[in-house]
Write a protein that binds this DNA or RNA. Structure first.
Lengths: 193, 193
DNA sequence: CGATTCTTTGAAAACAGTCAATCTGTGTGG
DNA sequence: CCACACAGATTGACTGTTTTCAAAGAATCG
């Protein structure tokens, strides 16, 4: 499964095969079974994590027991908690697997070293960070501008594969609405077609 | 006013005074009067922009004519449209000044060159990007998890200075609620104290 | 002071959330 | 292969929140 990660790097950087070997040497493969945690609230997150197989979610649980999904991550996506990683503070998020999954872990120390020693790797990482920010900002835009129905339609357009893979109730959580509301929206939307 | 920018760099990086001069040499100062645009929807954004004085907002206008504020930027904050800058595509955002302001502009080309030639500058830029992402993610969290009142209270805690500086109706827009709703929330919240 | 901008208020309507019950599909063990 | 359990989705009735539209009331600025 590490090949998935290596191909990812090959596709979006000019990291050489020798350097790729160096990257691989600090990779740690972790299998995460369905429902198993990769990170639990209160723990400090210490890695950069790349998903090579499966699907995970990052979420919080509020006082009422409702969970709120911040992010999904499938193959070729990154996951983890950048905030906890950067600050060294306990994470406010949980990450668990929705399917049996496999993740490549690189410790912060090793990761920073790779960035220092392999300029092409550093460039790629910055490009990814940049893109993550843009994606986050677009999501903010949907929250302040769109109705529940519009958000759902946009989600379907943007992540059609995820919509098929993840329970509806979790999509609702990701969109910031209840499962019941999403169910009603779907009924309405279907009528329109 | 460029001193504001230089102090900002001094405080969060180890860029030398010589290098600072190099940075300064590619800086372009732009005064933006209240209500004047720094960027208009449809234009391509080509700079990195740092605010040395005043206050600006980034927003979109929907079909109904409602505006939705994505971001505020005051002294020592960055502004602009990273998405348009990265992609070269026309921006979907407007940026205008809420007060008479002053902004330092660095073209993408020059900025990239600074990042290449001054490692400490590059490191600082990455740290800022990282932080921007974390801030964006926290904002997403507030949208999916909090009620209108909670979002407002959190905003007050996080940006007390902004709350005094910016019209309420714009804070409402930033929070994704109407000005009327915010007014009612304030009345309620005041009663509680 | 007059003009403009911003905030507040009221009443009605639209929207989304809650709770409880039912329905559907899937997989497991007997 | 069936019966059952379980998780997820749907539905209904009700409640609560937020928006909308229109009007009136502050506040600010030249």
């Amino acid at each position: 499964m590490i090949e998935v990660f290596k191909n990812y790097i090959r596709e979006r950087s000019s990291v050489s095969e020798d350097e790729l070997t160096q990257v691989e040497s600090v990779c740690q493969i972790k299998k995460v079974r369905r429902r198993q945690y990769l990170l639990q609230e209160g723990d400090v997150w210490k890695y950069n994590a790349f998903v090579t197989k499966g699907c995970l979610r990052t979420y919080t649980i509020d006082e009422k027991g409702n969970d709120h999904i911040i992010n999904f991550a499938v193959e070729n996506w990154w996951t983890g908690d950048r905030e906890s990683l950067a600050s060294g503070q306990p994470s406010m998020y949980n990450i668990d697997a929705l399917e049996d999954s496999e993740v490549v872990l690189i410790t912060k120390t090793n990761f920073d070293k790779l960035c220092e020693e392999i300029p092409a790797f550093n460039t790629m990482v910055n490009a990814i960070l940049q893109k993550s920010f843009i994606v986050a900002q677009n999501r903010i835009y949907t929250f302040i501008s769109l109705s529940a129905e519009e958000k759902y339609i946009k989600f379907l357009e943007k992540y059609p594969h995820l919509a098929k893979r993840v329970p509806q109730s979790m999509i609702a959580s990701y969109l910031g609405i209840t499962a019941e509301t999403l169910s009603r929206i779907r009924k309405q939307t279907a009528r329109k077609l």
